[in-house]
């Protein structure tokens, strides 16, 4: 078992348990909202399924068969049971169960999200370090980079990249995840570059800002001269600085994953990547709201899991959080 200095083990367990309970409550609330959103959509589900030629008796029978005549709270419990056992409903626009539609899309979104996250970390670390450079022109450039990409919508960046590097200079493919006939890792990576860059610039800029703040507050503290005085090499100093800057960066990345999941909606549809975001956009256009709600639920749950992970990771990484917040 892990045992941390400065915090008795049972306090750590209590902290982790508290966060877990909070995550579960949030997830439950999200589920309630999603459930109510589906159930209160205009239109009679039986009418949609049977068509306008059905008799009122047929519709009443079908509603009873689907359990729609029961009280809303009862319906929620039944629905939650279905969701927990992996049954998310049926998508009429795709003609398959929602689960069958979502799983492959989730795969593609995770691949895109992962490559974008890696890229965002690289951008964040590089730009954050450049932002504290002693050269003024370098700082000016990184300042502008931050100011622009913190708030530039990801879909607009994606369109600029697409026009620049897929249409005017056809260096990268303009869409999809693989070329026709081609298989393999490098081909997929090649397709992932533009959408990943479009997704990663905003979180990268946010992390760069966080790293810059940490580094400059360290530079004005006594820690660095003390470490230097003890004869630590510049490399070891850099390691110490980045260890200190890591927890806030992880928090930022966790929050930004939400932005990426939202941004993926547009990025995937711009670059025709068959992921969750593209699925949402398609189902919106086909008015398949059952599928929209299911995908939204999955996205919200991923986000909750990511936030929980970043909280827990911070406790492991930062001894100060262990002492103050436990």
């Amino acid at each position: 078992m892990l045992d941390y200095r400065g915090a008795p083990r049972n306090r750590l367990i209590r902290f982790v348990a508290g966060r877990l309970v909070l995550a579960v409550i949030t997830a439950l609330f999200v589920a309630v909202v999603m459930f109510l959103a589906v159930r209160t959509l205009p239109g009679d589900p039986a009418m949609n399924l049977l068509g306008t030629n059905s008799t009122p008796q047929q519709r009443v029978d079908l509603n009873r068969a689907m359990g729609l005549d029961r009280p809303l709270s009862m319906q929620f419990v039944i629905w939650l049971g279905h969701v927990l056992s992996g049954n998310l409903g049926y998508s009429f626009s795709q003609g398959r169960s929602v689960r069958e539609v979502i799983v492959p899309a989730l795969d593609n979104t995770l691949v895109l999200g992962l490559s974008a996250s890696v890229l965002a970390i690289v951008i964040g670390v590089v730009m954050g370090n450049l932002a504290t450079s002693s050269r003024r022109p370098v700082r000016r450039i990184t300042d502008w980079f931050e100011a622009i990409f913190l708030s530039a919508p990801q879909y607009a960046v994606a369109l600029v990249l697409m026009i620049g590097f897929a249409v005017v200079l056809p260096v990268f493919p303009a869409g999809g995840l693989s070329s026709r006939g081609a298989v393999g890792f490098t081909d997929e990576l090649w397709h992932l570059i533009l959408p990943s860059v479009a997704l990663a610039l905003a979180p990268g800029a946010q992390m760069a800002r966080s790293l810059k703040t940490s580094i400059s507050s360290l530079q004005s503290s006594d820690l660095l001269p003390a470490l230097r005085g003890r004869g630590l090499s510049p490399l070891r100093l850099t390691v110490h600085v980045h260890h200190n800057a890591l927890p806030p960066m992880i928090t930022v990345l966790g929050i930004q994953v939400g932005g990426m999941l939202g941004g993926a909606l547009f990025i995937e549809s711009i670059f025709s990547i068959p992921g969750l975001g593209n699925l949402v956009v398609q189902s919106v256009n086909l008015r398949d709201y059952q599928l929209v709600q299911a995908v939204a639920l999955v996205i919200a749950l991923i986000f909750i899991a990511v936030l929980l992970t970043s909280d827990l990771l911070n406790v492991v990484l930062d001894p100060r959080i262990r002492v103050s917040k436990l």
């Binding site: 949030t26 939400g258 932005g259 949402v280 919106v284 919200a300 986000f303």
Partner: peptide
């Protein structure tokens, strides 16, 4: 503030999209 936290569990775009559909 906990109810605010719950609203944060939705990416903003997604929340806007669900409400716009609704």
């Amino acid at each position: 503030m906990r109810s605010v936290d719950v609203l944060f569990a939705f990416p903003g775009v997604l929340l806007a999209l669900l409400l716009a559909i609704k």
